[in-house]
Write a protein that binds this DNA or RNA. Structure first.
Lengths: 224, 224
DNA sequence: CGCTATGGATAACT
DNA sequence: AGTTATCCATAGCG
């Protein structure tokens, strides 16, 4: 179960029970015992997209729709070869996530790296690496020569500060991020903007030689 | 536009054109001009959930389904008062995101904080704060007294290292995170697991006094 | 990008 | 949890 071989769950067949017969005239003989039931339920009605006030109903809807959302995400991922991660916090702050969120967060943060304005000598685009292939911020403090320690500390301080404010500053680019506190109506507007293809970002942002040093969480070698 | 007041876009009305008439007997008189069109298109067929090989078709599907996914997410967010963030990388690594991803990443990372095993003196759960209310890692390097500089540096080094490995170590809890490289079939299995309510995490993880120091990106005061 | 037919998600009810 | 009737997302085409 360590490498996610899905063990015993049959993931693909579950989506495709595949009666492998003529797909038309699907005489679904389910519940033959009570085949006569002209109109018992009202079926699915249209509901208004507004916060559900009744607690129980909201929880049921949350569970159902979350399942549906994750299923759609899985389908999209498979169909289009995309990586998708979803983070969901319920009202009472229970977290439900889908996909390899950690890896995606890593990738996401890497896409819009923090700019380090001061760092010890040179910039990384010019190949200012250590001899063991590490960027300066990856090196242990002990390996920094004493005469560079001061600026190293400064740079590290800036790095740390950038890191702390990272999350709140990344919105400078073309992503839709200017929500005040996500007051639950903004989601629609968010999707509205999203739907308008406003958030497509193709900034490579890595390996660029713009002179500034870019910070990335993890260069290449994920330590598994 | 700084505080995300959504400016001129009319978000709610757009979702609800709301004919505000009797919702039944919706005689959709669309395209009255060519009302006779017995069967022109084959409509929607069932497709197999398998990677679409034809490039153009895959892109179209990606666009359509991504829109649908984001719409569903928005609806879920509004209906249930949940915070939802989606990160999507297309095959060619274009990123599309939904929701206040930064804030959610912050919250997500805070839910399973990095344990800092060594830091200068005391642990934060015991209220080891600076007099200006900052945790030690938030303080500038310059404010660290000289006699503590050495251990400060060590701790900062550990912090940085933890930060780098953060993303790959967080999977120790009950989240489904053990995907090898997201090889595009795992998504289904992932959703399968998800669907089984295996990823509900109610670890508070914050404010706990387990003796270890917990690291959080940003304690409380997001700088706007 | 629009249209249409249909598969599938799901609100309401057991 | 299971069922069903509805509604909506969307595959396949202009």
């Amino acid at each position: 179960m360590e490498d996610g071989e899905a063990s015993t769950i049959t993931f693909l067949p579950t989506t495709e029970p595949k009666p492998l017969q003529n797909p038309n005239l699907l005489a679904k003989p389910k519940k033959e015992t009570k085949q006569k039931k002209p109109k018992t339920t009202k079926g699915r009605q249209k509901i208004e997209i507004k916060e559900i006030m009744l607690e129980t109903r909201r929880q049921v809807t949350f569970s159902k729709r979350r399942s549906g959302l994750f299923k759609k995400a899985a389908e999209l991922s498979v169909l289009c070869g995309a990586q998708i991660g979803i983070i969901t916090f319920s009202r009472c702050d229970r977290i439900y996530s889908f996909g390899n969120v950690n890896s995606l967060i890593d990738k996401y943060l890497r896409k819009a790296p923090v700019m380090l304005r001061s760092h010890p000598g040179g910039n990384v685009a010019n190949g200012e690496e250590d001899n063991d292939g590490l960027m300066w911020w990856e090196r242990a403090v002990e390996s920094v020569p004493e005469e560079h320690m001061e600026e190293y500390k400064n740079a590290l301080s800036v790095l740390r500060e950038n890191l702390l404010t990272r999350i709140y500053q990344m919105s400078g680019d073309r992503t839709v991020e200017n929500l005040p506190a996500f007051p639950n109506e903004m989601a629609m507007a968010d999707w509205k903007l999203t739907n308008e293809n406003l958030m497509a970002r193709n900034d490579r942002g890595y390996g660029g030689n713009n002179g500034d040093l870019e910070f990335a969480f993890m260069p290449q070698n994920g330590r598994q």
